[in-house]
Structure formats: C-alpha cells, structure tokens
Simulated scan of single mutants.
Amino acid sequence: MEVREPSASTPATLARELLVACKRGTATEAYASALASLDDADLERVRTDRETALAFWLNCYNAGTQLLLDDRPALYESPLRVVRFFRTPALTVGGTPLSLGRIENGLLRGGRSKYGLGYLPKLHSTSFERRYRLSSLDPRIHFALNCGAASCPAIRAYEPDAVDEQLDLATRTYLDATVTYDADGGVVRVPRVFLWYRGDFGGGAGIRRLLREYGIVPADASPSIRHRAWDWSKTPGKFVA
C-alpha cells in the first residue's frame, strides 16, 4: 500500500492506514513517519472537528498499542505494566511523542485523570493536550480502545464520517459479549472498565441508562452492578474480522 504525503492524505487517513498496516502485518514506518511530520495546519480538523478527532485518536491509540506490543513486548509483560507500557511513547504526531496514557486521558478523555474512577481532572496537561483534546468525553471510547489485554474490545478502523455509527456498533458488540443480567437476582455483571471509569459513564445511574439504551437490561430495570475481573493476558492482533 502506498503512503501519500500529508498534503494529499489527511491525518485521519494516515492514522487509519497505519492501523490497517498493523492488522495486515505490512510495513508501518512510512505511515508513522508521515504522522510524525504533520504540522499544526495539517492537524486543523483534528483540532476543530469532533468526528475527525474521535476517529483519528482512536486509530492512533490502537495502532500505538500494536506497535508497542510488537516492538517492545517486555513493557507489557512487566509487573510495572501500568507505568512502563502506558507511559512509553507509542507513536509521534506532529513532532510530539505520545504515550497511550496521553492519548487516552489527555486527549480522548479531555484531560481527565486515570485515577479517581473518572471523577478527577488530570493534574498536569501539556500544551499539546490542551490544544488537541476533545472538549467533551464520549464514554463509548471505552468499548473501542484496545490496550493489548484479552478483556479489551476488538479493534476496528474508524472513519470520521461514520464514527458515531461505528462506536454504537462497537459498544453494542462489546456489551453483548461481556455483560450478563440476572433478572431474578436483580444483578448485572459488567466489565471492570465500568469501575475504573465510573465517572465517565455518569456513575451508577449513567451505567444503568447506557445498559438500557443498548438493550442489555429492560427499560424498567435498575439492577445492582457487579464488576468482572479483567484478563490482562497479552493478546495482540485482536481485530474485528
């Protein structure tokens, strides 16, 4: 696959093509280099258009995960994974090295801390994060981001003009596969991401509202929420077929 220069290929296209190259196991260097050499003018729509930003940063995160798993697998396998894997630069955008943590928390989550169950702001945001972060948090990103764990959702390549429909599909698919509802016991068991980012979903009421919206629990149900264990087994290449 030929990589076009940034003048002929949008940042969103480059990020998508990098992710597709990761999926196919073909060369990624040209795409990564093109993303690194973008300038502020090239990234204008990433900065100003919500759909473009969502698709771009989701694809960057998921491609960055695959690149790290391939190039530096020991970071993931380390007992200090949370520090070593998520804080190591995964790819460079516009001359700025970005870790998975910075893409997720500084940009996609709009500058929220990974601590505090989603209720706390990020204490230190870089100028790049302040310039490019999304102004509002879409909790569906948690069903699209893949950090290499077996419990993570499958990866798909996101498109700006279809990102909302794609996120709906990703959300429904992941919830159908991971959530169980015990009507008799009044209990719903959900992935641990709902605990780690409880505030992103609007607390317990927001989680139940989302589960009703996607038909996981009945419209009149208000079950107790239990959280499943997370399987951190390294699972690269978990793409949607």
Rank of each mutant, 00 (worst) to 15 (best):
F143G: 10
I103K: 01
D176K: 12
N62G: 10
D200A: 15
T48E: 11
H124A: 14
R4P: 02
P218T: 10
A34C: 13
T65N: 10
E159P: 00
F143D: 04
A157M: 10
N146K: 06
R172N: 09
L100W: 06
L210M: 15
L145G: 06
V188A: 10
V193A: 11
L169W: 12
V163K: 04
K122T: 01
Q166H: 06
D39W: 13
S224L: 11
G116H: 07
P89T: 07
A8W: 04
R87H: 10
P11R: 08
D49Q: 13
Y158P: 08
F56K: 04
G186F: 12
R212M: 05
S224I: 06
I216D: 01
S136Y: 05
R226Q: 13
C22Y: 14
S9L: 14
I207Y: 13
Y61E: 03
G111H: 05
F56L: 03
P218A: 15
D182P: 09
L169Y: 14
P139M: 06
T92D: 06
G110E: 12
G106L: 00
Y214H: 12
R112V: 00
K234E: 05
C152F: 02
R16N: 02
G118M: 13
R198C: 02
L18D: 09
T178M: 15
V188Y: 03
V82W: 10
G111F: 03
A21Q: 00
T235W: 05
S113K: 13
V190R: 04
L38W: 01
M1P: 00
